[in-house]
């Protein structure tokens, strides 16, 4: 549970277009690392290289190394399907399986990984929904479709689905950008609880959110439209927001960007 991510010399391409250039960073276990930066700077692309989702996009290609403790995710013998089972992901728009019940949504990943006894499954689903602070709201309607929940509840359902398989790392790609402020607060509280068990990486457009939830913050930027995105700096969140060491970071955070 909860492994260190060590990225070195990572570049990602869409066809011939280089989206991110030569990124190296370390993400500590049991911490929250936030990625901030302007649109198109490659922070989402970079996040998707951490569970090998980038290569699902037609033309998607990655160079470099991502070490999860001592295993290279891009090693030649590594199966991307297995990577995604250890590195969970939550997306920008809540995407529960619309044809599945709430219970089946949470159990979906478990059923992919192997066969469980009904009682085991019940326990894990309950534990995961409790872990996602959703249990009390849905315990009486586990057999109802997940698409009937509110947006914030759906997103917590997706988090429950992701943590049910006990991943090492949890990636979140702007998990609150489609949610109202109250649902956002619920997710942020949840992130604070989850970091005790998982390594969490979150992409966000909301700098207050990055300041609230994360221990470390990485600022990404691009020189111009069409240029690859780069990691400008990664530091403790407090330091990034009070006294960043690069001028571009300060410009972005104080709104003097562009």
């Amino acid at each position: 549970m909860a492994k260190r991510i060590d990225v070195s010399g990572l570049s990602a391409y869409y066809g011939t277009h280089k989206a991110i250039d030569d990124i190296s960073m370390t993400v500590e276990p049991r911490s929250v690392t936030a990625f901030i930066g302007p649109s198109g700077c490659g922070k989402s692309t970079f996040l998707r290289t951490l569970n090998r989702m980038h290569e699902v996009t037609p033309g998607g290609r990655v160079e470099g190394k991502v070490m999860l403790d001592d295993e290279n995710l891009y090693g030649s013998h590594v199966d991307p399907v297995a990577v995604r089972r250890t590195v969970g992901m939550v997306f920008q728009r809540p995407n529960p399986f619309p044809t599945m019940s709430i219970f089946d949504n949470v159990a979906a990943g478990l059923r992919l990984n192997g066969s469980y006894k009904k009682s085991e499954l019940n326990d894990i689903v309950e534990r995961s929904l409790k872990g996602a602070n959703l249990w009390n709201e849905v315990k009486d309607r586990l057999n109802k479709p997940g698409s009937g929940l509110s947006g914030g509840q759906q997103q917590r359902l997706c988090i429950a689905r992701a943590i049910a398989v006990e991943p090492e790392v949890l990636l979140m790609d702007e998990p609150c950008s489609a949610l109202d402020p109250i649902s956002t607060l619920a997710i942020e509280d949840l992130i604070g609880e989850l970091k005790e068990r998982f390594t969490i990486v979150i992409v966000t457009h909301n700098m207050q959110q990055a300041a609230r939830v994360s221990d470390r913050t990485a600022f990404f930027n691009l020189a111009a439209v069409g240029q690859p995105g780069k990691l400008i700096e990664l530091d403790d969140t407090e330091r990034i927001f009070s006294n960043p060491s690069v001028q571009a970071t300060e410009d972005y955070i104080s709104g003097r960007f562009g």
Binding site: M53, V56, V81, R84, R85, F91, F97, T99, L112
Partner: peptide, 27 residues
């Protein structure tokens, strides 16, 4: 089939056939 439904399955570690079974065929 919305890409986000297929990605939901992929991110859980579904193989191509499992993505089809969990997302494409139900949709």
């Amino acid at each position: 089939v919305p890409k986000m439904h297929e990605e939901a399955a992929l991110a859980l570690g579904a193989t191509r056939w499992e993505v089809i079974r969990m997302s494409v065929l139900p949709f």
